[in-house]
């Protein structure tokens, strides 16, 4: 069984002032875990640490998920960047430095995914999954908040992750948009047997998640279902 096991992790930007201290918890496969906490308590820092973007200040992580996908807060994204929806997905398919050099010298290929045709097929499949296929050629700057969120989820799906980390995916969405996005996440969890960890400030109906964690006093507590 795939699990993410966190042992006494401290996370933050300086050792003197960690945002989270001695956190231990475990996430099992196919769960939807909701992470809550007031602003500034370190939710994003924890997600970025679990995604491998930040190194933990101390403690260990045992992760046997094969690949994590991270969807950042859309307010941190640069909407004005000149990209189409398709290119936003395409650019993540670049191979590593040496692998790319080898591919280029031996096969004149640059992409991590074997052929342009295969890459196009996978992009179409990921966009179809999130209901954005019909908008693949529009500029990213003309996407609404909900559409941008779906594009970023599609970008994550491109590399077949089994662990999806989403930072406030429901912010800037209206009620209808929130319901649609939650249904999409639920569908992905069932269909792709995916584990989902997400943060939110919105009230989410408890049928939409399996566990709820809350950050309090630099630590993590598990809330029992039904409790607010």
């Amino acid at each position: 069984m795939k699990t993410l096991k966190i042992n006494n992790i401290s996370a933050g930007y300086t050792r003197q002032h960690p945002l989270l201290q001695d956190i231990s918890f475990q996430i099992k496969e196919k769960q939807i875990v909701l992470l809550e906490g007031p602003n500034g308590t370190g939710k994003t820092t924890l997600l970025r640490t679990l995604a491998g973007i930040l190194k933990p200040l101390s403690g260990t992580m045992e992760n046997n998920f094969s690949r994590a996908a991270y969807v950042p807060q859309i307010r941190n994204m640069d909407h004005s960047y000149p990209l189409s929806v398709k290119e936003c997905l395409q650019m993540t398919a670049v191979a590593g430095f040496t692998e790319r050099l080898q591919n280029f010298l031996l096969f004149f290929k640059f992409s991590r995914i074997n052929s342009a045709k295969e890459l196009d097929m996978r992009i179409d499949a990921a966009l179809k999954e999130t209901g954005m296929l019909h908008k693949k050629d529009i500029p990213l700057s003309s996407c609404s908040g909900g559409e941008l969120q779906r594009v970023l989820i599609a970008r994550g799906l491109l590399h077949n992750p089994d662990f999806f980390i989403l930072d406030e995916p429901l912010s800037f969405l209206d009620r209808k948009g929130r319901t649609a996005l939650l249904s999409l996440l639920k569908k992905l969890q069932r269909k792709k047997r995916m584990t989902i960890l997400m943060t939110s400030h919105d009230d989410i109906h408890e049928t939409m998640f399996n566990r709820k964690l809350i950050i309090e006093n630099k630590n993590l507590k598990e809330l029992k279902r039904g409790k607010k």
């Binding site: 970025r48 491998g52 991270y70 950042p72 960047y81 990209l83 993540t92 670049v94 050099l101 590399h159």
Partner: peptide, 23 residues
């Protein structure tokens, strides 16, 4: 032109680049 694809993703979304194994 060799670093261009990396530069594009690092400029647009540095975190995604790091997750994808790009230094």
């Amino acid at each position: 032109f060799y670093i261009l694809p990396y530069l594009k993703i690092v400029t647009f979304d540095r975190d995604e680049a790091v997750i994808g194994g790009i230094n």
